[in-house]
Simulated assay, not measured.
Amino acid sequence: MTTTIDRNVALIRRAYQCVESGDLDTAQEPLTANFIPNVAGVAEPLHGKEFKARGRSVSYRSVEVYRFEGDRIAEEWVAPDLLSLMQQIAPTSTNH
């Protein structure tokens, strides 16, 4: 038996797979018509962005919470770890 949680997790995974493969039109299918993205401290979503820090790749983590309406994703709250990201992309000081 598939639970609501299982269905919601599968929905999120399918959306992320579409984003990762570059199929943004399909990634929007599980979203409600009035989907609300909320990213704390960031002016635009970070999904799919590539950052370079002093010529090397960087990474960051985030906590993501979703609200569902029926079988659709209605809202996304993302709290990225901006401190670790900024530490990786900030210029180094030459006055040590």
Rank of each mutant, 00 (worst) to 15 (best):
Ile5Tyr: 14
Leu83Val: 13
Ala74Trp: 11
Glu64Asp: 14
Arg67Thr: 13
Ser57Tyr: 01
Glu50Gln: 09
Glu44Ile: 05
Glu50Pro: 00
Ser84Met: 14
Ser84Asn: 11
Pro45Cys: 07
Ile89Gln: 12
Glu76Cys: 09
Ala74Cys: 05
Ser57Asn: 08
Gln88Tyr: 03
Tyr16His: 06
Trp77Leu: 13
Gly55His: 02
Gly70Leu: 06
Thr94Leu: 15
Ala40Asp: 08
Thr2Gly: 01
Arg56Pro: 04
Ala27Ile: 02
Ser59Phe: 14
Val63Ser: 13
Glu75Ser: 11
Ala27Cys: 04
Asp81Phe: 09
Val65Lys: 14
Leu31Trp: 07
Tyr16Pro: 00
Ala27Ser: 05
Phe68Asp: 07
Val9Met: 03
Asn8Val: 03
Glu76Tyr: 12
Lys49Ala: 10
Arg72Phe: 00
Arg72Glu: 00
Val65Ile: 13
Ile12Val: 12
Gly48Leu: 10
Asp23Glu: 08
Ala15Cys: 07
Lys52Gly: 07
Ser57Phe: 01
Arg7Asn: 12
Glu75Phe: 03
Ser62His: 07
Thr32Leu: 01
Arg67Phe: 03
Pro37Lys: 02
Thr26Val: 04
Glu50Ser: 08
Thr2Ser: 11
Leu24Val: 09
Ile36Gly: 07
Ala33Met: 04
Ile89Leu: 07
Ala43Trp: 03
Arg7Pro: 04
Leu24Cys: 07
Pro30Gly: 00
Thr2Asn: 08
Ala40Tyr: 10
Ala43Lys: 13
Lys49Arg: 14
Glu20Arg: 12
His96Leu: 13
Ala43Asp: 12
Thr92Trp: 10
Ser57Arg: 10
Asn34Ala: 12
Leu85Arg: 02
Leu82Ile: 05
Ala90His: 15
Thr26Met: 04
Glu64Asn: 14
Phe68Ser: 05
Glu76Ile: 06
Arg14Ser: 01
Ser84Cys: 12
Leu24Thr: 05
Ala74Arg: 15
Asn95Leu: 15
Ala15Lys: 06
Ser93Trp: 15
Arg61Tyr: 08
Arg14Trp: 04
Leu82Glu: 00
Arg7Asp: 14
Thr4Ser: 11
Lys49Val: 10
Cys18Thr: 00
Val63Glu: 13
Ser93Lys: 15
Ser57Lys: 09
Val19Thr: 06
Asp71Met: 02
Ser93Thr: 15
Ala15Val: 00
Val63Lys: 13
Ala53Asn: 05
Leu46Met: 13
Ala40Arg: 12
Ala33Asn: 09
Pro45Arg: 08
Val19Pro: 06
Pro91Met: 14
Glu50Asn: 03
Val63Phe: 13
Lys49Tyr: 07
Ala53Ser: 14
Phe68Met: 11
Ala27Tyr: 03
Gly41Asn: 00
Tyr66Ser: 10
Pro45Gln: 07
Ser93Gln: 15
Tyr16Gly: 03
Pro91Leu: 15
Ala90Phe: 11
Val39Tyr: 12
Phe68Trp: 09
Pro45Thr: 06
Leu11Trp: 01
Tyr60Ala: 08
Lys52Phe: 02
Arg7Val: 01
Asp6Cys: 00
Ile36Glu: 14
Val63Met: 15
